[in-house]
Design a protein around this nucleic acid. Structure first.
Lengths: 244, 244
DNA sequence: CGCCAGGTTGATTTCGCTCAAGCAATGTGG
DNA sequence: CCACATTGCTTGAGCGAAATCAACCTGGCG
């Protein structure tokens, strides 16, 4: 963890905020003021940005890097709840709910974040209705996604969830039109992937082998060739009824 | 479904809103204006207040009754996501996210709700920062609860989740001090209970028998005697590491 | 070289699902 | 009033998905 300078006449922060829907509600003047009361921090791989159970000190706007949001389970293990990257704002939940952190944030790829202290954040939210509405929308969307995921883990098999996750990682890649067997790169290790899916590492291995044996995908370290994108889509759609 | 009159000099609505944290931000004048643009509706058992996939027409403030929020799964079944009762506000998620409903709301016990049309709601949120912050807090809390639940369904066994649910239903009953074997009443049927836990009806039956055989609780229709509240707590705590 | 972290594989067990039947309470029509 | 659906729940037998336990790769790296 290292505080870095990014205040002065550099406009990178301003630009970063400007493209994020929840922050877009800020006027130029407010934005400039915000940038003054903010600190940019670098964290190295493995460092923890905040800990489960700790008081919330403010929110973190992610400039770049990859962060795993995890939650300890009783067994001493922990579950990866989700990944955060550029443009995401972390810890707003605890701040707005007025609660302690319910999860911790660990760096998976070296990260630069912009830390906004709680009082600054709360003052802005209260005074600028547009910012408030922005975060309201963000929270509502995330709530929807989380419910969807809860529903998915209850109703779908692990294999199907893996298929879905691969589709998510393939992002805006056009599976119907573009390269018929594109290669995507997994941003995380097998163990993390398993944790994200809510299965054991061993089970994930077997699921992967299953997909390979069915000629749906080829795994090679973190590189995955989607051999039969169509089939992958079906894998998810058939069980989930989604139309994607 | 029946529209009923509750506008005129009746203050019941005002009072209902006043005690709910997210609505508490309204000034007396605003509240009065709100009550003018609102309609009170009664729904009978089994009626659906809004449907999954439908456009959001506004939010519903629940005066009394019990509502099951459900989400269809591909198999034609549906999962009960949660229950809503007096004081809850329904459908704010879809409204604020600007999305269609991701679930439907079905009446489990006859309901009186107060419907606030989308434009009215959005106008208020945008103009009154306190109301916005109220809903922000509400959304953040709910997001936390949902994440917690997701984590729970991934890491805990069904038996443990049942124990937890019973504890939640026993509410503010003081298990440590009060009646050593209190009786609680389940608000919903076995099938619904199973759906809420994310298990099949049959599995729930077996779980119940398990608890009875272990002398932890006695089930009798919708009445449950918690014989060994201590053990029930442990059942949950041991596995979850919660301190409750 | 030994060591260790990350990953795979195999054998076995367990939990919860599926399918099928049975039962009690309630309702409905003849 | 009885025959018979219907609804909500329980029980049993068998199955399957994933967990668990344990061994074993594989590729760095000191």
């Amino acid at each position: 963890m290292k505080r870095i300078q990014c205040h002065e006449p550099c406009t990178c922060l301003e630009r970063a905020f400007a493209v994020c829907p929840e922050w877009a509600g800020l006027e130029a003047a407010e934005l400039e003021r915000l940038v003054q009361s903010v600190s940019c921090i670098r964290y190295d791989l493995g460092e923890v940005i905040y800990h489960e159970g700790a008081e919330c000190q403010g929110v973190y706007f992610v400039i770049k890097g990859l962060i795993g949001v995890r939650k300890a389970d009783p067994g001493g293990d922990d579950t990866l709840l989700w990944l955060a990257g550029s443009g995401d704002t972390l810890a707003y939940r605890a701040l707005l709910a007025g609660e302690r952190h319910r999860d911790s944030a660990e760096v998976l790829k070296p990260v630069t974040v912009c830390h906004i202290p709680s009082p600054v954040m709360m003052r802005m939210i209260r005074s600028n209705a547009r910012l408030g509405v922005g975060f309201l929308q963000r929270a509502a969307r995330e709530l929807g996604r989380t419910e969807e995921r809860l529903h998915e883990t209850i109703t779908l098999t692990a294999r199907c969830r893996l298929a879905h996750l691969l589709l998510l990682f393939s992002g805006d890649l056009d599976l119907e039109e573009g390269d018929p067997s594109p290669v995507i790169e997994l941003p995380i290790s097998r163990s993390h992937l398993a944790s994200l899916l809510g299965v054991r590492r061993e089970s994930l291995s077997r699921l992967i082998r299953g997909l390979e044996e069915d000629g749906i995908a080829q795994f090679n370290g973190r590189h995955v060739r989607l051999l039969h994108a169509r089939a992958l889509l079906d894998e998810y759609r058939l069980e989930s009824g989604a139309s994607m």
